[in-house]
Simulated assay, not measured.
Amino acid sequence: MTLVVLLLVPGLHLLDLAGPAQVFSTAADLGLGYRLHYTAEQEDVPTAQGLPVRASLDWPELTPDDLLIVPGWRAPTLHGHGPLDPATLRRLTEHHAAGGTVASVCAGADALGRAGLLDGRRCTTHHHVQDELARRHPAAHVVRDVLYVEDDRVITSAGIASGIDLALHLIAVRHGPGAAARIARAMVVYARRNGDEQQASAMLRHRAHLSDAVHRVQDLIDTRFADRLSLADLAAAAGVSERTLTRRFTDATGLTPLRYQQLLRTERADHLIGRGATVEAAARAVGFQDARMLRRLRARN
């Protein structure tokens, strides 16, 4: 069971909180083993939208597999907003030092900066406060105009709805693109938001286009990436000919449908290998009959 701890700060934006919370709540409904915990320095936390929320004053015991997320708050400027005690900031630092993942949405990146977690790392935040974040934390490398950035288990997102993209990315990395696609469909959101080349998820990296036919095919491949999918079946799902699908898919993504599926398989296999699986076991898990093709694709990438 993975614990997702959301640290609530006065003035928080409801969607900064609700977006990631909904992703992991839906993941729990699908049996992926998540439990949410809301903590704060005060029980009743006012929000930017006027609806107060209640949180626990207690911190649960965390393991390296658990996630700690700081949703953002209303901040025309970062200075003087988002108050957090030094003891709370130490919680962020200690979780990361123990091997855990720490994430933020929007202005929450400033809390990570005050905890020292942005020093020497790439990060991002809402475009309205990017310049100020860079001034306040000069040792950080602020990446502008992207949805989220991951650097050594520190993940920051641009703000508001991009918290959903951040959470879907974490699901895709931990459980594969099919799981992230199922959650996106359950939430009635498109898993098609783009970021920059540092995004680990191929599913999100190749969604920066407006072709509905190609998105439908990607939805199918995302869900069944470990299956053998014929071009004819994919074309039927898109309602176009095989030749038209290949042309439109390549124009939209720079890849053929087969190459896109291979990227998803290789990415998932790399994650399994990083968690201790053998190359042979990872190859079978993602749909290859043996490890030879996986080895060739990993060398190619």
Rank of each mutant, 00 (worst) to 15 (best):
A238Q: 05
T101Q: 06
D270I: 03
L170S: 00
A235H: 06
T256I: 06
V189Y: 09
A180T: 01
V4K: 01
G100A: 09
S201D: 13
L57C: 01
P10T: 12
L264T: 09
R247Y: 14
R91S: 00
D165A: 15
G195K: 09
V149L: 04
H209M: 09
H175E: 07
T223K: 01
G239D: 04
A232H: 12
A180D: 03
L264A: 10
R135L: 14
G276L: 08
R259G: 02
G120Q: 09
R275L: 13
Q49S: 13
R265V: 11
P64I: 13
S230G: 15
T26L: 14
A40D: 03
V149S: 00
R74Q: 07
D66I: 08
T250E: 11
V5T: 13
T101F: 04
A172E: 06
V102F: 08
L229T: 06
V129I: 15
G287Y: 10
T253F: 12
G274S: 01
V9A: 00
R243I: 15
V53N: 01
A158K: 02
H81D: 02
S157G: 00
L294A: 03
P10V: 15
H127W: 15
A202V: 14
R136H: 11
D119G: 13
A238V: 12
A172Q: 04
A158I: 08
A134Q: 14
G82Y: 01
L166S: 06
G287N: 09
H79F: 02
A181I: 07
T101N: 01
R144G: 02
R136F: 07
R91L: 07
P10H: 12
V142A: 00
T39R: 13
A18Y: 10
A134R: 08
E242H: 06
G82K: 06
D58R: 15
D233G: 11
L210W: 14
A277Y: 11
A107N: 01
V102Y: 11
D119C: 05
Q262D: 11
L255W: 06
V70K: 01
T246H: 12
M203R: 13
L264P: 04
R224M: 12
P177Q: 08
A285N: 02
R247T: 14
E197R: 14
A232R: 14
V45T: 09
L117Y: 05
Q199A: 13
L89A: 02
R144L: 05
A109S: 14
R153C: 09
V149Y: 08
G19K: 09
R295T: 11
R284G: 11
L264G: 05
T156E: 04
A238H: 10
L68I: 02
A252V: 12
A134G: 08
L264F: 12
P83H: 00
G31I: 14
R182K: 13
A179W: 05
D85P: 00
G116Y: 06
H175C: 02
A48T: 03
A27D: 08
D290Q: 10
Y260I: 06
A75V: 03
Y34H: 12
P177K: 05
E132P: 07
A21Q: 00
L255V: 09
V105F: 06
L92Q: 02
A232Q: 10
R192N: 15
V154Y: 08
A208L: 13
V105G: 01
V173S: 01
V149M: 01
D85E: 13
S104P: 07
S56H: 12
